[in-house]
Design a binder for these strands. Structure first.
Lengths: 234, 234
DNA sequence: ACCTGAACACCGTTCAAGT
DNA sequence: ACCTGAACACCGTTCAAGT
């Protein structure tokens, strides 16, 4: 065995190999890795710093705060997203593009909750938006309706993903969804006739099937609903 | 001045008047009051306990956790919501009902973020759902589409409210929304043609005007989009 | 049975002081 | 200039021990 390289030894802490210089990309990489292994809620500044062999204060040289870090994580995941091949039907392509974005958020509901208040502005997010606007334009959706409608489509994906609570907690405890079903089932049919009649339907449907229906419903509405300011704009 | 009532004196702490017995309603009342005065983010178990002259552990006798407390706060606010008078046009009535719900959430974006992962099941929430289902039925929307569509309408309100970040932080710092606008404006028109062309439109519109358009677009889509399982159900 | 003091196990962020 | 130890100002929740 070779003698330890004194330079490496001097650089390393706690028996780790050479500590790489801190960079923004390195921080985001580590954050994505920890999120993949343990979930977003475990990606704290302290744990991240510990993983990178430094103190939490050092991270603030490269990221402004937790929200900005979440934005950077999202854009890194979007970079890995496989571009959706264009099929003949623009609606199907748009649906697939949205669902490939949605997949990222459904995999990480905590990230979806962050994104909801984030207004992402990363490069890969903008590429996604550009692609979706292009598809809407291809489909003959009026540009002004597409502009407002895109927000709705993205919001649908984000909010639907955010609703998926990471249970991971006690799996024995009934979820809030189950509690709601129980409440609705027990509701008085005289006071809540529609609710009771539709009880099963309200919670029915495979997640993805429902989501695809929602996308189609939204697309139809966006295409067919004139904006209130239509005509009185330049 | 009368001598202090020894019983009251013995009961009181820190010079407060008689400490009322702890009840679930009392806790929720205090939570709503603190939220009104200082915002939801200041409604912590510790502050709430302090306000009620007890320790945080005592609250757990009456509420299961923070999420459940948020659900109780929502239902208390919904109880105060003024019922929307039915107008001739069912669409207008439905819009008004949704917006009166939305108002509560827009007033408290933090609550909206909680509600998104909450699946509310309070009495007044169920009343709202029943009323909305009734309006959709009045409007001739097929019951199965109404069941799935209602979720979308409620999600629209919740997510739109949740997006409203309570700035209250440094008002000098540019908001994320402003940062996004700046990024889009500076984007390369060759790489992002649709994005740049629609830049103004993407962020245009008074909030409520946009929201009303979104409700109408959703209603149209819900009414006109058949569910995938239509026909193969009983 | 009902209630709670004190602890457990954490947070994000800042800033004075180092190199 | 770049980096960071230590502190600041908090959290939600639990549980053993009281009354």
């Amino acid at each position: 065995m070779l003698p330890a390289d004194p330079v490496t030894k001097a650089r390393s802490r706690r028996e780790r190999p050479a500590k790489p210089a801190l960079t923004r990309d390195g921080i985001v990489d580590a954050a994505v890795r920890i999120m993949g292994e343990q979930g977003l809620e475990r990606v704290t500044m302290r744990r991240l710093a510990d993983d990178l062999d430094t103190g939490p204060a050092s991270l603030y040289v490269y990221v402004q705060n937790m929200a900005e870090l979440h934005g950077a994580i999202l854009d890194r995941l979007l970079a890995q997203r496989v571009a959706t091949p264009a099929s003949g039907d623009w609606t199907a392509t748009l649906e697939a593009s949205l669902l490939s974005y949605g997949q990222i958020l459904f995999d990480h509901p905590g990230l979806a909750r962050s994104v909801l208040t984030l207004r992402p502005a990363g490069e890969h997010y903008l590429e996604l938006v550009e692609a979706l606007l292009g598809l809407l334009s291809d489909g003959g959706v009026a540009a002004d309706r597409a502009a407002w409608g895109l927000d709705l489509l993205l919001q649908l994906m984000t909010a639907s993903a955010a609703e998926h609570t990471t249970l991971e907690a006690s799996p024995d405890a009934p979820s809030e969804a189950e509690a709601q079903i129980a409440t609705v089932s027990a509701a008085d049919p005289a006071r809540f006739p529609h609710l009771v009649a539709l009880a099963d339907d309200l919670v029915s449907g495979e997640g993805e099937e429902r989501l695809r229906w929602a996308i189609r419903a939204l697309l139809t509405g966006i295409r067919d609903t004139p904006r209130p300011d239509e005509g009185r704009r330049p």
